[in-house]
Structures are given as structure tokens and as C-alpha cells.
Design a protein around this nucleic acid. Structure first.
Lengths: 212, 212
DNA sequence: CCTACCGATCGGTAGG
DNA sequence: CCTACCGATCGGTAGG
């Protein structure tokens, strides 16, 4: 097999089939979520991929790099959602932007569930984790501000502190990662509808029954 | 000091002041939550308490025992709440019992936050953790049944699958452990009100504005 | 990508 | 002979 040297190698040859960085990252994140980051050894990861431990280090500089890249993926996605929602848009009320950010957050959680799950479990045990927590705090602050704006607009009930509403609302959204399965009973749209319905019908004044 | 052998020793003498099992458990759970169970060594725990590692083993049989006792504490409390709420009571509708279980769950999460936090992070990495996950699944099933009953009663909206409502509702409740601080801005009653308001006004049909 | 290892630290236990 | 520990070290395994 693999006769003739017919084809010229691509400009940057990448060696034989094997695993590339992103395949290793995917497997690592899956293991980190299943067993926990600390309980996952690089040896576990190697076994999962049918490689040896040193082979892993051929592709990545270390376990923490894998963690950092997964956290960056999740944070980049969520930051994009929040940044866009926080931007003033022509004719969009804070309430509309909040509703949109909830829906798009659900989409991100579903599409990037492994990395977001990892992000939501970070404890701050290393520089990488502390940096991720700082970015998360920035997101939380933006979301809280958006909720506060919607309350100030008169669109949301004012009898619960906006900061508390924000915590609970996105606590509900984030809880998705604990049970959602792409091959399960609910497609993303169903979940997004359920969350926005549950969150806003009762939060939003006088819009009862609008999502049926 | 400590002259005369006047006082007869209590039946079961417990030695000198030192730490008892429960003080060690409290410190362990706090560390497990701060750094993660796997990232916490028995040496860390000893240092935290100003003891040596062997001294820890004088009080407990091992790290996993500490985990198991914390998980049992959380599970026992939550089981009590769910069992009582699942029991048919004279004149109590499923809706009323669900509302009550949410309120009492919040109280348990606040009063037993450390052990419940630990419970919600269990991954199933050992027999102890697998047993805890099984008890958790039992609780989740009871809660889902209660929600289904309330829907069947006609008390809750039927346009979202009951199993999904249950996930999201208790996802919101459980998210408490991620940010609630006893010395923070909100007392337990405020949080319980906020959660039941947010969860049910919109979930419950035609009860708008009843909790102000 | 492997065999062969390292410095350190893990959970747990010895004798006293 | 007890409770409450200590200094030292066990056999294995972690990330690298």
C-alpha cells in the first residue's frame, strides 16, 4: 500500500494521519467533563486515544494548555453573544436584547456544550483558571447590566433585585449543560423556547401566553 | 489547676479538646468545594487544621469517608424535603406541594450549602460517588413526577414538557450554590421569594403578581 | 510517536 | 491501657 510518491506534499506537511491538536482537544474536554479535570491524567487521555503519554506531548505542551483552549473557546462564544446583545441597536429595547441573549446563549451552550460545561466548573486553581474566571465575571456583569436596563425600561418586574434576577435567569440557562444531550428528547429550539417561556412569562409584564 | 479528682469522668470520655470528626468534616467540605475533591490532598486538609496528616487518619478512615458523609448529609436533607412533598397531604394540591418543595429546597441549599454544592459536582468517579448519583436520580424522578402531577391538575402550563420544566426549575434552584453567600446581600427568605416568584409567575396560570 | 525514566507528591500507615 | 497525636516513610502514580 501507499505506493508511488505521486502527489507532491502540501506546503506544510503535517505527518501521517494520526490525531491533530483539535481531535486531542475534543477527547480531552470530554474526559475532563466526565471525570473532572484533576482526576483526568494525561495517561487516561492517551489510553482513550490509543496513544502513549509521550505521544500526547508531541501534540500539546501540557494538560493545562488543553484546558486553556477549551475555556477560550467557550468564553469567545459567550463573549460574542453578550457583546452583540450589549451593543445598542436601532429600535431594540433592553428587554428585546435580553430575550435575544438568552436564546443565543442556549444555542451556544448546545453547540459548544463540552467547553462551556468545563468553563462552568472552573474553580480558579491555576493561572489559566483564574483568567477564565475573570472573563466570566465580565460576562456576568454585562448580563446583570442588561437585566437592570430592562427593569429600568419597565419591561421586567421590579419587585426582585435585578442582580438576583440575572443570577437566577442565567443559572437556569447554564443548568442546561448538566443534562442536555444532543441525541436526547429535545432539540435546541425546543429547549430555547422552554427556557425563554419559563423565564419571561412571569418576568415580563403583561405578555402572558405569547409563546405557545 | 485541675486539682482533686473530685469529678467522676463522664461515661464516655472523649479525650482533650482537639478536633472532632464533624469539625474535620466541615473543613474538608470547604476545601473540596474551593479546590475540587481531587485537587484537595489530605495534607492540604491537615495544614488547614494545623494538624499532621496522620492526625487526620486518627479521626477518619480516609478522604473518601469525608466525601461520603458530606454527600449523605446533603442527600438526607433533600430526600426529607422530597419525601414529604411527594406524600399526599389532606387538601394539598400537587401545585401547592411543588411550590413548597421549591421553597424548602432553597432553605436546604442555604442551610447545607457546602454539602449540597459538593453533591451537585459529583461525577461518579468512585463507588461513593456512584451511590450518591443514584440517590440524586431518585430525587430527580420524584421532582419530575411532582411537576407532572401539577401539570395534570391543570395548575401548570402544558405547552412545555413536564420533564423539561422540572430540569429547568431545579436547575435554577440548584444554581444557588454557585453564588449564594450567607454574608451577602440576600437573606434566605429573599432568595426563596425571588425563586418562587420567578419560577411560578409564568409557570402558574393566572396567579400573576401574587407574590410581591 | 516509543522506551525509559525524573522530581514531587499522592493517600495511607508503620512504630512509638 | 486510653486518646491524641508526631516524625518518617510505605507502595504507586502524577505530569512532564
Amino acid at each position: 500500500m501507499t505506493t508511488g510518491p505521486a502527489e507532491p506534499p502540501p506546503r506544510r506537511r503535517r505527518g501521517r494521519p494520526g490525531y491533530d491538536q483539535s481531535a486531542i482537544l475534543r477527547a480531552a474536554v470530554e474526559l475532563f467533563n466526565r471525570k473532572g479535570y484533576d482526576a483526568t491524567s494525561v495517561g487516561d487521555l492517551a489510553k482513550e486515544l490509543g496513544l502513549t503519554k509521550p505521544a500526547i506531548y508531541h501534540h500539546v505542551t501540557g494538560k493545562e494548555q488543553l484546558l486553556g483552549e477549551a475555556l477560550d473557546d467557550a468564553l469567545d462564544e459567550l463573549t460574542a453573544v453578550v457583546t452583540e446583545a450589549s451593543r445598542e441597536r436601532a429600535g431594540a429595547t433592553a428587554y428585546e436584547r435580553l430575550r435575544e441573549v438568552v436564546r443565543r446563549s442556549v444555542e451556544v451552550l448546545v453547540a459548544h456544550q463540552p467547553s462551556v460545561t468545563l468553563l462552568l466548573r472552573v474553580r480558579g486553581n491555576s493561572e489559566v483558571e483564574l483568567a477564565a474566571l475573570e472573563r466570566r465575571r465580565w460576562l456576568d456583569d454585562r448580563l446583570a447590566a442588561l437585566v437592570a436596563d430592562a427593569v429600568a425600561e419597565g419591561a421586567l418586574r421590579a419587585d426582585v433585585p435585578p442582580a438576583l434576577v440575572s443570577r437566577l435567569l442565567f443559572g437556569m440557562v447554564n443548568s442546561l449543560v448538566e443534562w442536555y444531550r444532543p441525541d436526547g428528547a429535545y432539540d435546541p429550539a425546543t429547549v430555547a423556547d422552554a427556557i425563554t417561556t419559563l423565564a419571561f412569562d412571569g418576568l415580563a409584564r403583561g405578555e402572558r401566553g405569547q409563546a405557545s
